[in-house]
Design a protein around this nucleic acid. Structure first.
Lengths: 340, 340
DNA sequence: CTGAAAGCGCTTACAG
DNA sequence: CTGAAAGCGCTTACAG
């Protein structure tokens, strides 16, 4: 039994062509499922390729086709200090990777310094990526502008800038705000506070909007003393809580637009002698892993991140083909645990 | 003022050659810092390239050089259920990305199904990656074997199989076990339990070994009733705690070889009425983000993961050049918080 | 349905 | 120090 010789000499389509007794044109066509080749020949050639573990040379193919079939996943370097965003990023990557793989594309990691914009022309002009997926916590607008100027195909996570002809996938933030508020009202809360991320972020404003809609519908007053902001960090969540407790000591619920901050709120409340959920109910946002592990486990708005990742991938590929930008909102749902 | 025409026709080295009045051979050499080109010419050419945002075509370069200058980062798909390992993976990726970038390499994400091994010849034979970084929670041995058979350059995170000529970076597990036990003894504990991941894992055995060394040196008995194992999951940590509490109700400390399990231990202890750290001190392993967020915050053994990532990258590139495998242990240190 | 040939944009011996 | 030319391994009009 002839075991396949190690380093068997089947490295190029020419080798396959020789074995099959056809030209390399035919091999090329057969391997890319061209209708120009007979079923018999195709089967023969594919069998040979399989048998010899032959994979077409990516560099040659890319040079010929002028496309890399590779997408750059652009994000900020992962820092020492772990943040919510990082966790979120990872989960998103899983979905994106799956989606791209299904479409026959590779995922290249482009870890950029927040202030550098040179990466874009570099990756684009060298042909290392055909398009980009933008998932950056900060400075997103800057990078969006750069890519638009370069006419680089890309899709972003989050709400796109006004009047920009670009692809995006975002969570349904208004709905998320509504879900949280509706749940808190349903469990009988009347003095529902809001702790948001930076108020300049559209996402935060939309969640606030959803929360306000529901309060209004329930004829609850929109008390500004019940609104505070942080920066998604641990500490800012604790500080916001203290401020709220001072401004509105009678609050009986808090809706926090990020799980990391929500966990800090939980802790700050307890430190001030409030029991969760008996005295104050807390709802977070994102359903990160810490949500299940917190004490008590956190009720939170989940964005179905893996799905979002898949859609990011699929819609970018679609855009690459059609040139038609899509903007989608992925649904959100409430995960009910013990904090509310 | 002539703004650079959008889509300026400087796409290939031939364009640069024309502008500079030299041949493309010279441009190619100048851009790759060949000593064969005069300083003047080089400066001229590099200036032109800069001015026109010219980046050399990656596909053509790869085809010519027969190397992709790309490394495949191999890991399992990110699942719905978030695990410790995922967090760990992300942090490691940050360091790897930085290290590869510094060496002029790109990072390709290779998300594989745990049981599939076809990815290896595919990525290798198509020339999409020159080497691989293996960071998989499970089935590592299978993939290591596959890569060895293919003679594919790679480096792995973790302790390499015995007698395998391969590159690796691992944490100093024995030392980690020692640090935990030493600290617990230093704060006066006598009945120190051990909760490990699966006992077949070398990492777990080494941490146990470190722990035992220290107990022995302190003349504390090695009581088998104080040892239990889990599978790194939440639940298994809780179960192990209950078993220990039954076998050794007088325990006053627990060393847990993973933070996820440690948090579960924390909770299970409290559920059984033990105060942490007053009654029972707890030390975890890995210093994941949950370690700071747990209640009380977890004292834990940290592996300096970003450094590990950088070394993984650098040593793989080194191996690609020299063919000499390296095996390094990155240091560990204890992060003292409130649980011990 | 198939093949011979040109071309994708680089690198690098080889000849000055 | 520089250039003309071959070659890397594919794809795809073009001609049967």
């Amino acid at each position: 039994m002839a075991r396949k010789a190690p380093g068997s000499q089947v490295k190029t389509i020419m080798d396959i062509a020789r074995l099959a007794g056809v030209s390399k044109s035919t091999v090329s066509r057969a391997l890319s499922d061209s209708p120009l080749v007979s079923r018999e020949t195709r089967r023969l050639i594919k069998g040979l390729a399989e048998k010899h573990q032959f994979s077409i040379d990516a560099a040659a193919r890319r040079l010929s086709l002028r496309r890399s079939r590779t997408i750059g996943f652009v994000t900020h370097g992962c820092h020492k200090e772990f943040s919510c965003t990082d966790l979120f990023t990872l989960e998103l990557m899983g979905g994106i990777s799956a989606g791209l793989h299904a479409g026959g594309y590779d995922l290249l990691l482009v870890n950029v310094d927040p202030r550098d914009t040179g990466w874009a022309p570099e990756y684009l002009n060298s042909g290392r990526a055909d398009g980009f997926i933008l998932v950056m916590p900060s400075r997103k607008q800057t990078h969006v502008r750069t890519l638009l100027e370069l006419e680089a195909p890309f899709i972003m996570w989050g709400v796109p800038p006004a009047r920009c002809k670009c692809c995006s996938v975002a969570g349904d933030n208004v709905r998320g705000g509504r879900l949280a508020a509706e749940h808190l009202i349903a469990i009988g809360r009347k003095r529902i506070a809001f702790v948001g991320g930076p108020p300049r972020e559209v996402e935060v404003r939309q969640r606030l909007e959803g929360y306000r809609q529901v309060l209004r519908e329930a004829s609850l007053p929109a008390d500004p003393a019940l609104v505070a902001y942080g920066d998604y960090s641990d500490r800012s969540g604790a500080e916001a809580t203290l401020r709220l407790l001072e401004q509105a000591p009678d609050l009986d619920a808090v809706f926090v637009t990020g799980d990391m901050m929500a966990v800090a709120v939980l802790r700050a409340l307890r430190a001030r002698g409030r029991r969760v959920p008996e005295d104050v109910a807390v709802v977070g946002y994102d359903d990160l892993s810490i949500a299940q592990l917190s004490v008590p486990p956190l009720t939170t708005v989940s964005q179905t991140v893996p799905l979002a990742g898949r859609i990011l991938a699929e819609n970018l590929l679609q855009y690459l083909e059609t040139g038609i930008p899509t903007n989608v909102r992925v649904p959100v749902h409430l995960v009910t645990r013990e904090s509310a």
